[in-house]
């Protein structure tokens, strides 16, 4: 099969129905490499995602990495599937102040039904601030 360019993949992703969770996170695809099963996304770490200490709530960083990993997984299968997460482990390396953040998702191994994933989250300075691994499964998308 002819591999999509990153621009084609991002355009393909944009044809999916709007996703509330992605909108909330200010999700924006920067690079989708279907051949490498890799996605790099920008997210908005908003003030409303913060704890009382004024840093981003870890769960929202998980949500960002979850999304980047899901995009990487769906890119590996031409965006024909959705990928509900079965389990995820997150390590929070440092507190993350609000701002524009980058998350990367990478497929480690995609089987017929199960996919193993890695995620990374970088703060506004570009320093690695959180990491994740996840296991998800492919489910046929409800749209074409």
């Amino acid at each position: 099969m002819h591999q999509m360019t990153s621009e084609q993949a991002i355009a393909r992703l944009g044809k999916r129905p709007p996703v509330a969770a992605s909108k909330l996170l200010g999700s924006e695809p920067l690079e989708i490499d279907a051949a490498r099963s890799f996605a790099r996304m920008a997210f908005l770490g908003k003030a409303e995602f913060c704890t009382a200490q004024g840093v981003l709530h870890g769960g929202f960083l998980s949500a960002m990495m979850d999304e980047a990993m899901a995009i990487a997984a769906t890119a590996a299968k031409n965006f024909d599937y959705v990928v509900p997460t079965l389990e995820m482990k997150t390590s929070y390396l440092a507190p993350v102040p609000p701002g524009r953040l980058i998350a990367e998702g990478q497929v480690v191994k995609a089987g017929q039904r199960v996919v193993y994933l890695e995620g990374k989250l970088f703060n506004t300075e570009g320093a690695l601030a959180a990491t994740a691994t996840a296991t998800a499964h492919f489910r046929k998308a409800l749209w074409k």
């Binding site: 999916r16 129905p17 996703v19 509330a20 969770a21 909108k23 909330l24 709530h57 870890g58 769960g59 929202f60 998980s62 949500a63 960002m64 990495m65 979850d66 999304e67 959705v82 509900p84 997460t85 995820m88 997150t90 489910r139 998308a141 409800l142 749209w143």
Partner: peptide, 16 residues
Amino acid sequence: HLFNPLGMMQGGFTAA
């Protein structure tokens, strides 16, 4: 506002 394309909660928010 926390849901995925399936109309279910996005796993990340469940984690949150």
